[in-house]
Nucleic acid binder design. Structure first.
Lengths: 248, 248
DNA sequence: GCAAAAGTGTTTCATGTACACCCATGT
DNA sequence: ACATGGGTGTACATGAAACACTTTTGC
């Protein structure tokens, strides 16, 4: 056996968003013709082949920018998927055509990222043939992308319990109820709101803005922000905190 | 710009062992001639280029087997390192010569693994030009391997606090003191032994073997084992446990 | 004034932490 | 008999969980 030579490296991004009710993921429509000449339409994660002289992270940001027109996004490496036959047959043919290459094997590095979902982003995705899907309702995906999505979800769950990343999914000004809904929706649990507020506020990283909701037919909620500077300073000083650990 | 074509994928393994006192890492001696014709000897992590038709994980196991003659080893993917110039100049020349390839860029996937260090392993490593170094005393390493090692250490620390992986570093029969020493050495903290025993034993995964130390000039310690089956069953049933969290 | 969501405190229980002495063995 | 590390229990502090009612707004 000899070292692999004719292979490619790709990046696939699992981009999560939260619309206030459920967790969404960005998927790209793909059209291709299978071996029997039939046209197939399915969905895949946004991705790219890496360029020469380009970092994987840079490549991931390039992909993100393509579908969101923004670079100010939480991004993290997830896992490498390297089964030799993960892209083969019709799918390999599609890929070689699409990227105008001639490769026999594609190893992909999955990244996962979190965005503050808004109407601009939804429109932006639609422009590029992509759509935000409810995570729960995703069935089949191209190649091994379903596996990648599952692993990203697992990571998101774990991270949500141990790091303050929820704020990457919310606009910078949010109500505590929105924050709680996010935890409940993603973790699939119910949380007592008194205990939730106590825990969150006692962290010391949630600041009142002084502003309140307007034009709501109930008691208006106060808006808060997350003090990221303070958090990062504390982390650097090794004051590791137990941000939230409803881990059972 | 166009997709990268002439590149290679490698696997590098950070293999940790524990000798009862301090954390060790396996490093391989490398000899090469630099641009000025001077012979340089340094150390690197054990690694390989991936073969055609070979999984990354398989490639990592191949590397492990090379230096330990065993496959029964804890192994986990860590991170991909992809800086375009991470292997360049003399080092790239060395690599092309060593593996008899002709590549312009090497992206590496780091794996980290834990072994039960014993005299057989030490001898086995020596046979292959490798040595077990005290982690604290590692200075310079080839390429970006120092960075990789640092990241593996961070992962080990985090995992030690949240998962029962300590047992991958101890022989299957161990005393509680040995276990405690391991935590203290790796995390760099002191632990009260009464509290340690209480916590560890109350987990329900530590079983007495009934055997005791022999020929020691003090009260002989009891040997215990870790009930991995029970732990894995509980994990599968989503009874996530908080194994140890002396995290701060 | 009523519907709808926001906001607020106390008690109980489990878990973490601090702390000091006796025990079993080899020499 | 003494040196060496093994092994044990209790009291206190902290944090999680359970639980129900009042407040503010738009209509």
């Amino acid at each position: 056996m000899s070292p692999q030579t004719n292979h490619s490296l790709s990046v696939d991004c699992v981009i999560f968003g939260f619309d206030g009710h459920s967790l969404k993921v960005l998927l790209v429509e793909r059209e291709f013709v299978d071996g029997r000449g039939e046209k197939i339409v399915d969905y895949k994660l946004p991705g790219n082949l890496i360029f020469e002289n380009e970092d994987l992270r840079t490549s991931a940001y390039r992909t993100l920018a393509e579908y969101t027109s923004t670079r100010d996004i939480y991004l993290r490496q997830l896992h490498v998927f390297s089964r030799p036959d993960r892209v083969s047959g019709d799918e390999l043919r599609w890929l070689n055509e699409y990227y105008r290459v001639n490769t026999t094997r594609v190893v992909t590095v999955a990244y996962y990222s979190l965005v503050k979902l808004d109407s601009r982003l939804i429109a932006c995705a639609a422009d590029k043939g992509a759509r935000w899907f409810d995570v729960e309702s995703v069935n089949r995906l191209a190649m091994d992308h379903k596996t990648i999505l599952a692993q990203a979800l697992e990571m998101l769950n774990r991270q949500l319990m141990t790091e303050p990343i929820a704020f990457e999914l919310l606009s910078s000004r949010f109500t505590l109820r929105q924050l709680q809904m996010l935890y409940e929706a993603i973790l699939g649990i119910e949380i007592d709101n008194r205990n939730f507020r106590k825990k969150v506020l006692s962290s010391g990283y949630i600041r009142e803005t002084g502003e309140k909701e307007k034009n709501v037919s109930h008691k208006p909620a106060a808006y808060y922000t997350f003090d990221k500077q303070k958090y990062q300073k504390d982390v650097r000083q090794k004051f590791r905190l137990n941000f939230i650990n409803w881990q059972l």
